[in-house]
Amino acid sequence: MSRPSRQEEGEWMSRPHGYTRGEWRYVVLSPGQTVFFPSGTIHFVFRIRGVQTFALRGHILQWSGIKRWLKVIIAQVQNEEITNEDTASSAPQLVHVMKGLVSNRTKAGRDKELGGPDAVVRFFALIKEFDTSVAKLRHAESGVQP
C-alpha cells in the first residue's frame, strides 16, 4: 500500500485479509529484478500458477529506521494476522540483538547516528512496550492470566 495514513494502516491491521481501501500499487517482476520495501510496508506477493518462481527475502535494518521497525514488530506480536512470519518466536531474539546494538552505540557516544538522546529514550520505551506485548502473548498462549 502506497504511503498509508495512520487511519488506513490501523484499518488494515484490524482486517488485513479484507481491507481494500487505500492506494495500492503493483509491479510484475521479471527474472533478475529485485524489489525493496522499507520496514512496515504493507504488501502481498502473488505468484502465477504453473510458472516456476524462486524468491528470497531478508530483513535490512537501517539506523534511521529502528523506531519504525520496532513499532512494526510490536504490531506483529499483537496481531499475528498481519504477517506470515512466526514473530512470536523470532522477534524476541531480533529485538534483543537490536537492543544490544543500540546500547553499544549509545555507550560509544554515537547516539546522534540514532537520532540523538531523545530518539534513544523513545527506542527503549518501545522496548518496554514490546516486552509487555510478548508477556501478554505468552500468558494468552499458556492460558494463565497475567
Rank of each mutant, 00 (worst) to 15 (best):
9 E>V: 06
10 G>Q: 05
14 S>P: 11
15 R>K: 04
16 P>M: 06
17 H>C: 00
17 H>Y: 05
19 Y>W: 04
19 Y>G: 03
23 E>W: 13
23 E>V: 15
24 W>I: 03
25 R>P: 04
26 Y>T: 11
27 V>I: 13
28 V>I: 15
30 S>Y: 13
31 P>N: 04
32 G>P: 02
34 T>H: 03
38 P>W: 06
38 P>D: 09
38 P>M: 04
40 G>M: 00
40 G>K: 01
40 G>L: 01
41 T>Q: 03
41 T>R: 00
42 I>H: 01
42 I>T: 02
43 H>D: 02
44 F>N: 07
45 V>N: 05
45 V>Y: 03
46 F>Q: 12
47 R>G: 07
49 R>A: 15
50 G>Y: 03
51 V>G: 11
52 Q>W: 09
53 T>F: 13
54 F>C: 11
55 A>V: 13
56 L>T: 13
57 R>L: 07
58 G>V: 02
58 G>C: 04
58 G>S: 10
60 I>C: 08
61 L>C: 11
65 G>S: 08
67 K>E: 15
68 R>N: 15
69 W>E: 05
71 K>Y: 02
72 V>D: 02
72 V>E: 01
72 V>K: 09
73 I>A: 12
75 A>H: 11
75 A>D: 10
75 A>P: 03
77 V>K: 07
77 V>M: 05
81 E>F: 05
82 I>E: 00
83 T>S: 14
84 N>W: 06
